[in-house]
C-alpha cells in the first residue's frame, strides 16, 4: 500500500514537472513573439528631400511631342498634353532602400514580405505592395514628427501639417521631367549611362550619377517601378476625382520603369498600372513630403 502511494506520489511529480516545463516553454515562446519595440527613427531612415517648387508643368504625351508615347499618356482626344499646376512639394532624392525598409520592418508594426529584405541594403526595396509603401510612409511620417534632430525647414513643414506619403502621379511626373517637358529626366534622348535600364537587376540607389536630371533626383528612370498615390484612370488627370473611383476595380499607377525595361518604358510620361496587392521584384517606391490632404 505504501509502495503504491509512493509510486503514485512520484507519478504526480513527474506529470506536474512535465506540465510545468511545457508551460514555461510556451510562455517563453509567447514572450518572444510579443516583444515588440517602437524604436526611434534611425538616421539612415531619414530621406534626403529635394524641393520641387510650385508652378505649372505639362503633363502627358502624344505622338506629336513623343513618337514613343502610348495611348494612355495622351491628355485628351484633342490635346497630347495638359497643364497641371502644383503647389510646392519635396520629393525624396532616392528610391527607398532595402536598409530603410528594414528599419521599418524592425519596428515590428507591419508584416513585410521577407523577399523585400533580401537584396543588398543600398538597393531599392522591391516586393512591396501599394499598402506596404503607404504604411512605410505613415511610419516614416510618424517617426519624423517624433524626431528631435530634423532640419528646421523640415520640422516647420511637419508642424504645418505636411506629411510623408507616396507622390501622386502628377507630382511624380513633374519631379521627373521638370517644367521643361523632358522625355527622360536628363533630357530628350535615351542614355543608358544615366539610369539603370536594359540591365539584369537593380543597382544601388544613386549609383547612376545624373546631375543633369530634373531637380537632381536619382533613378527616376529605371531601377524599379515606383508606386504613386493615384488610381489608374484615363487622362485628363484630375486630383479631385479620387472618390469617383470608389466603385472601380482600380489598379494604381506606377512610374519610371524598371531595370529590365527598354528606353520606351522608362520615359517620364510612361504610365504603368498594378494591382495594389502586387509584390514584384521590379516594383518599389519613393516618398514625398507634401502639404496636400489626400
Amino acid at each position: 500500500m505504501s509502495v503504491s502511494r509512493g509510486r503514485s506520489r512520484r507519478s504526480h511529480v513527474v506529470v506536474t514537472c512535465a506540465l510545468l516545463a511545457a508551460s514555461v516553454w510556451l510562455a517563453s515562446v509567447s514572450g518572444a513573439s510579443s516583444a515588440r519595440s517602437v524604436a526611434d527613427l534611425p538616421p539612415e531612415a531619414i530621406p534626403e528631400f529635394v524641393e520641387v517648387p510650385a508652378g505649372p508643368f505639362l503633363m502627358g504625351a502624344g505622338p506629336a511631342t513623343d513618337p514613343d508615347a502610348f495611348d494612355n499618356e495622351r491628355w485628351s482626344p484633342t490635346a497630347a498634353q495638359g497643364t497641371v499646376d502644383l503647389p510646392t512639394f519635396y520629393m525624396a532624392r532616392h528610391e527607398v532602400t532595402v536598409a530603410q525598409f528594414a528599419a521599418f520592418a524592425k519596428a515590428g508594426t507591419w508584416r513585410v514580405d521577407p523577399r523585400a529584405l533580401a537584396a543588398p541594403p543600398d538597393h531599392p526595396v522591391a516586393f512591396v505592395s501599394w499598402p506596404d509603401a503607404l504604411a512605410y510612409g505613415r511610419w516614416l511620417d510618424a517617426g519624423l514628427k517624433r524626431s528631435s534632430s530634423l532640419p528646421a525647414w523640415l520640422r516647420a513643414r511637419l508642424d504645418e501639417g505636411w506629411r510623408v506619403t507616396l507622390p501622386t502621379e502628377a507630382e511624380w511626373e513633374k519631379a521627373a521631367r521638370g517644367a521643361d517637358g523632358r522625355r527622360f529626366p536628363w533630357g530628350h534622348d535615351p542614355d543608358p549611362a544615366r539610369a539603370n535600364y536594359q540591365r539584369a537587376g537593380t543597382a544601388p540607389v544613386g549609383q547612376f550619377a545624373c546631375p543633369a536630371c530634373a531637380f537632381g533626383l536619382a533613378d527616376m528612370s529605371g531601377n524599379v517601378w515606383e508606386w504613386t498615390a493615384s488610381p489608374y484612370q484615363p487622362y485628363p488627370y484630375d486630383p479631385d476625382n479620387l472618390r469617383a473611383t470608389i466603385d472601380d476595380d482600380a489598379l494604381w499607377v506606377m512610374r519610371g520603369g524598371h531595370f529590365g525595361d527598354p528606353a520606351r518604358l522608362v520615359r517620364t510620361t510612361t504610365r504603368g498600372g498594378a494591382d495594389p496587392g502586387a509584390r514584384r521584384a521590379f516594383i518599389g517606391f519613393r516618398v514625398v513630403l507634401t502639404g496636400r490632404r489626400f
Binding site: 505592395s129 501599394w130 499598402p131 503607404l134 506619403t165 498615390a229 488610381p231 479620387l242 472618390r243 473611383t245 470608389i246 466603385d247 472601380d248 476595380d249 482600380a250 494604381w252 494591382d275 495594389p276 496587392g277 489626400f294
Partner: peptide, 13 residues
C-alpha cells in the same frame, strides 16, 4: 485594398 476593394484603398489615403 490588397483584395482590390477600392473604398479601402481610398481609406488608406
Amino acid at each position: 485594398c490588397e483584395t482590390r476593394f477600392q473604398p479601402a484603398c481610398l481609406n488608406l489615403l
